[in-house]
Write a protein that binds this DNA or RNA. Structure first.
Lengths: 342, 342
DNA sequence: ATTAGCACTCAGGCATCGAGAGTGCTAACA
DNA sequence: TGTTAGCACTCTCGATGCCTGAGTGCTAAT
């Protein structure tokens, strides 16, 4: 059997219909649509039957309409991806409303982005904070807090901030801490995590810096590998009839609460614009009836983060992709300059 | 009609039964329990009928059993609160497992706490970061980041850290920033938010500090009023049959996504150990079938946060209260000393 | 005051039935 | 040879009715 132009058109029409109604699509319904162009229901039935044999359609039971298979969605999105991802300016406006110009912390920006995406798409969205591909420390600062406590602040090139409270033996004055800060900043500027480890060893031999401080720096550096993740619109998942079974919904929500699983869902192939996982491709039983669209956003050449949307397999791929595309670019720009724009 | 000892015992037995089964309780079921002590079902029926008249019981329909009314729960919890809140040591152990000794940021501690509570209780839990009753700034630090960007770090007495990226006109060296940091820290130490505002005005006249920095400090101070909120176990809500209607579940989950509503639910009367809101007492239509137990935890005398649990009205109050009690104390201690314990 | 007994009510499970939507197949048609 | 009309068949879904079990309220007896 061969896929011809007409079969393809019919398949796409079925997918479109099913995405918006969540109801099996019948031949008569389809024949009435003008997109197909005056084919009788009988003809369509024949074509559908072929498409089913080819693995693109499924029948929940005899005498129901057909629903698209995962393979069909695959074909569908493959086609979408080859097109343009222009976001209608109206939607763009709606997205922009969510940006808080005054956001002064990366986390705020990330959270806003997640909420914006989920508000506009009505799906659940996930956004990770940017992660440097190669770490560049811009500044290490020790802040005096109390007799025995010191706050360690680490700022990276992309403006990512990690702070960590440290306990140290013996009191240090603000000025001493400042000096150490300058020393560490100078020594560690622009190093990779592995290099930092080496350098710290070296420093501990050459200079007298508190052991706890060096430990702290190392830990903070390592934490840069675990970027913050924000989830928006968790409740959206419950909008869709495929999750009217609470147990299914619970399982999906539970995934969203587990950092590791969430990361697993999100991992995007960085060289590709979009990674789309449909149904079982998500690799987790809990999400076998979900699709995940994720994409890598870039800040300069040095660091990347991920944004994604999770929803039922019959997701409105065509709407979500431009939203992510737009948002990814917006995030890249917004985060390029650390801090708020004037 | 008067509430006598027997009526009360029967009412409590009904509540206990309903809490664990979520099914209307009938007279025969009840008469078989030994807690009631060999009363015939007929007698119990009479008593139940009285209790219904008094407003403590409700009948979903004739010939169903009775379910407790909000008033009944009120009575029930009032009684609970007067007792002791000892947590069985076994549960305490389960809670403790969740504490990460290495947590070095207030937010981590808070998040762990929320997850611990929801894991142990199987309800959704909410924990706010501590909020100073009177703000005490311990240190203001400006960290050089780039030519035009400076990171402002604010540390309060209780080790709460706020950081904020600022853009400033004109470059400042690390040393200059350090000096300004010292100046600001000295001037602002131990002031209330109102006083900070005054003082900043004064400083801007006396010393030459960048306008943007002063603005930033003010904003950071004001943000201390909006403590971080962490939610744990959102998916737990879907365990309970009262939310097998997805729309109801969605509404509750949506509340958990709205900071303001969440705050409204949580506001606890600080002088009381526990605040319990049952059904409509939550003051929101979305949560009219929920109960919220919240409690204020204290860190020293100066600052307080809130921990709470949200679940169906037939919540296992007797189990949740000791958990919160324990957790509140644990948090108070854990957060007393800024930073990790040695 | 308590209880046994009885009539009554109602939700929920189960089978039945008809309507509606949809299919597959065949035969006629262009 | 591809398309279509027609028809028999299948299956779901909602409505209907029946039955059972759980539960109640009331009354009369203890």
């Amino acid at each position: 059997m061969q896929m011809d132009e007409r079969k393809y058109r019919i398949l796409m029409a079925i997918i479109d219909d099913y995405i918006s109604t969540a109801m099996p699509v019948g031949s008569r319904t389809l024949s009435k649509k003008q997109t197909i162009g005056g084919l009788s229901s009988a003809t369509i039935r024949n074509e559908m039957s072929d498409l089913e044999e080819m693995g693109f359609l499924e029948q929940p039971h005899t005498s129901a309409g057909r629903i698209p298979s995962a393979t069909a969605y695959r074909l569908y999105v493959e086609n979408l991806l080859s097109g343009s991802h222009r976001l209608p300016s109206e939607e763009a406006k709606r997205l922009r409303v969510h940006f808080d110009r005054r956001a002064r912390q990366v986390e705020d920006v990330i959270l806003n982005a997640a909420q914006a995406i989920s508000d506009v798409t009505r799906y659940t969205s996930v956004v990770t904070a940017p992660q440097a591909q190669r770490l560049h420390i811009r500044r290490v600062q020790l802040v005096p807090v109390s007799e025995s406590a010191v706050l360690l602040v680490l700022v990276t090139d992309i403006g990512l901030v990690k702070d960590m409270m440290l306990h140290i033996d013996g009191q240090l004055t603000a000025d001493q801490l400042h000096e150490i800060s300058n020393l560490l900043s100078e020594q560690l500027a622009g190093l990779t995590p592995a290099a930092v480890r080496e350098k710290l060893k070296e420093i501990s031999e050459t200079f007298s810096v508190h052991r706890q401080v060096l430990h702290g720096v190392l830990e903070a550096v390592e934490q840069t590998d675990r970027p913050e993740i924000m989830v928006g619109g968790r409740s959206n998942i419950l909008h869709y009839p495929e999750y009217s079974d609470t147990e299914k919904a619970r399982a999906v929500l539970a995934v969203l609460e587990t950092r590791d699983k969430l990361m697993q869902l999100l991992t995007a192939t960085p060289q590709m614009a979009f990674t789309i996982r449909i149904g079982n491709e998500t690799g987790m039983p809990e999400t076998s009836e979900c699709s995940v669209i994720s994409m890598t956003y870039r800040i300069g050449d040095e660091s990347t983060g991920t944004i994604g949307v999770i929803g039922p397999t019959r997701m409105q791929y065509a709407r979500v992709i431009p939203v992510l595309d737009y948002m990814g670019k917006a995030l890249g720009e917004l985060l390029r300059e650390p801090g708020p724009q004037p």
